[in-house]
Simulated assay, not measured.
Amino acid sequence: MEKNNSNGTVTFYPNNYENSEEDVHSLSTKGRLLSYNNQLKDSLHNGLKFTELLDELIETTDSQNLLRAAMELTLFQLDTAYLVFPQQYSQSDYYLIFLNRLLQLHQNEQVILQSSDRNDELYHEFPGINQNGYFTFRIDNTEEGGAYYTEKNTGEILFYLNFQRRILHFNSRAITNLLVVDYSKTYNYETVKKFEMYLMALGEYFKKDYGFDVDFNIMDPSNSTFYQFGNSGIPQAALDKLFIQAARENFMLVTGLHNEAILKLDNGVEVTIYDKSIEDSSATLNKWGLVVTDDDHKISWFDLLFQYDFIRTWYLDNLSSLEIQSNPLYF
């Protein structure tokens, strides 16, 4: 038993101590102790649940279990008011770990998961690019389950990934700035192409394994891909320049039956620039863009920007009217 002294402290007495007054302080103190103990137990169970999820993320060979563990870990609140773990991985780290594990399951782990003691974080490094590529995830604080795959030195966001919405969308502006402009100054096409193939592989795995909506943007090699310009107006000035620049390289820009501009390149590759809105009688706005076609469905707009110097120069010099549009909801 316990008794409240005049100074406000609570005194504990043996159970056989006789006191005619019911000591409410004894009851409240016991309740607080029990509550505290239960909260500790709950916190410890929460920690054990976390370790089970982390085991799953690290060890599982099932792609569905892998995604489930990653989704839970990126939203998991490990600390409680009663138990704090001073050493933890961040939410963004779990996205990186997930990508590596997904690549492992497909026996295609091209990117290296590194740990930075200086920044106290995990990051991706790609062989061949090394110090010029420090890739992390930046959490989207407006959409649950979303994060941006970012090259930290430049701030370029290569793609947006959202587990809850099941989408992966690539950013044409960042891919152009980082891979086409920056990396082309230092690395040859083969090296940059390997990195692009890594990004493509990620998209294919998300699409195949999980049914994600994947927008490959300028990297999509399908002949049916329409690369829409961000500017809806007719790029007449840019087309006039392309006619001149192509002619200098012994290529002809010709006009098709529906006033589309057709550039015929080597090995049966064609670039067609036209207003897609003409295919929709209800359209009220122009929708200018381009299509790349080849016999094997292997050539994308990204490839042409590397394979033809005059195309790269023309595109970069006229981005105000030609820049390929990315999803405006995320970029």
Score class of each variant (00 low, 15 high):
R165I: 00
R165M: 09
R166E: 13
R166W: 09
I167P: 13
I167M: 15
I167R: 12
L168T: 02
L168W: 01
L168V: 03
H169V: 00
F170M: 14
N171G: 09
N171K: 08
N171M: 06
N171L: 04
N171S: 10
N171W: 02
S172R: 12
S172W: 01
R173N: 15
R173H: 10
R173T: 11
R173V: 13
R173D: 10
A174Y: 00
T176R: 07
T176Q: 07
N177L: 09
L178T: 04
L178W: 02
L178P: 00
L179S: 06
V180A: 07
V180P: 04
V180K: 09
V180N: 12
V181W: 00
V181C: 06
V181A: 10
V181S: 03
D182P: 00
D182M: 03
D182L: 09
Y183K: 07
Y183E: 05
Y183D: 07
Y183F: 09
S184N: 10
K185M: 08
K185V: 02
K185F: 03
T186Q: 11
T186Y: 08
Y187L: 02
Y187V: 01
N188H: 01
Y189S: 13
Y189C: 05
Y189G: 09
E190N: 09
E190H: 05
T191P: 07
T191D: 14
V192T: 08
V192W: 00
V192L: 01
V192M: 01
V192R: 02
V192D: 03
K193D: 10
K193V: 00
K193G: 04
K194R: 08
K194P: 02
F195I: 07
F195S: 08
E196D: 09
E196Q: 14
E196N: 12
E196V: 02
M197S: 15
M197N: 14
M197K: 15
M197I: 04
M197V: 04
Y198W: 07
L199Q: 10
L199C: 06
L199E: 08
M200R: 15
M200Q: 13
A201I: 06
L202G: 06
L202T: 01
L202M: 06
G203D: 08
G203L: 03
G203S: 06
G203M: 05
E204R: 13
E204D: 15
E204L: 05
Y205A: 14
Y205G: 09
Y205C: 14
F206W: 03
K207F: 02
K208N: 13
K208M: 11
K208Y: 01
D209F: 10
D209Y: 10
D209S: 15
D209R: 07
D209K: 11
Y210Q: 12
Y210P: 11
Y210E: 07
G211Q: 14
G211V: 00
D213N: 10
V214C: 05
V214R: 04
V214L: 09
D215S: 14
D215P: 05
D215A: 13
F216I: 08
F216G: 05
F216P: 04
N217V: 04
N217F: 00
N217G: 03
N217D: 13
